[in-house]
């Protein structure tokens, strides 16, 4: 009963997957917008934190992971499975590093969680961490599948979905930095 992901997808099917997946991303974005909007409604634009090296490092790692994952997708589309697996491997490594850095950031924040700014910071970062964790798991599963020749050039949708999701995770962190440090 399991779907054969090596079967070629038609243009219509790819449109369907992309369109439907965009709905999932939309719903996730609404959840983050709710927290970000609530942060401004509660605490205005004041911020007790300064943008630190760790937050910037997380951004760099997230985006680097996305860069490699996209490279893996492009290679898969060209039919270069070996190159795809290598690029994806770097993407997976960076994804897990990002997860680790997010945990470190949460553990070392130093703000008492009861304050309103800190409440929003903790919630938003925890939500982001959960998404990063899901993304890292997905990229790892896709990398493993690529290694076993489970993906094909004419059916790269599942990898595309993973890469799109990681891109979303990377963009949310930029929004996070803007909301909690810049605006």
């Amino acid at each position: 009963m399991h779907q054969d992901v090596s079967a070629a997808l038609s243009e219509r099917e790819i449109r369907m997957y992309r369109g439907s997946f965009a709905l999932i991303i939309f719903a996730e974005a609404v959840a983050f917008v709710t927290v970000f909007a609530s942060r401004f409604l509660y605490t205005g634009t004041d911020t007790p934190l300064e943008l630190g090296a760790l937050s910037l490092a997380i951004a760099v790692v997230l985006w680097a992971g996305w860069f490699f994952a996209r490279g893996g997708l492009a290679a898969l589309r060209r039919g270069e499975l070996g190159r795809s697996a290598v690029a994806q491997g770097w993407g997976v490594l960076l994804a897990w590093v990002a997860v680790l850095l997010l945990i470190v950031d949460l553990r070392t924040l130093g703000l008492p969680p009861g304050g309103l700014f800190a409440s929003h910071y903790y919630l938003a970062e925890a939500m982001h961490l959960l998404h990063a964790l899901a993304g890292a798991l997905a990229l790892t599963a896709l990398w493993s599948k690529t290694h076993r020749n489970g993906l094909a050039a004419n059916n790269a949708w599942v990898l595309e979905a993973g890469v799109l999701f990681w891109g979303f995770v990377a963009w949310v962190w930029i929004a996070f930095l803007l909301v909690f440090f810049v605006i």
Binding site: A31, S38, P113, Y122, M127
Partner: peptide, 22 residues
């Protein structure tokens, strides 16, 4: 709207578990 209530539910859980102060 489900993501909105979902986020509110998370706020409620965090207020009980962490505890935050929403």
């Amino acid at each position: 709207w489900v993501p909105v209530i979902g986020t509110a539910m998370l706020m409620g859980i965090f207020d009980r578990v962490v505890p935050t102060g929403f």
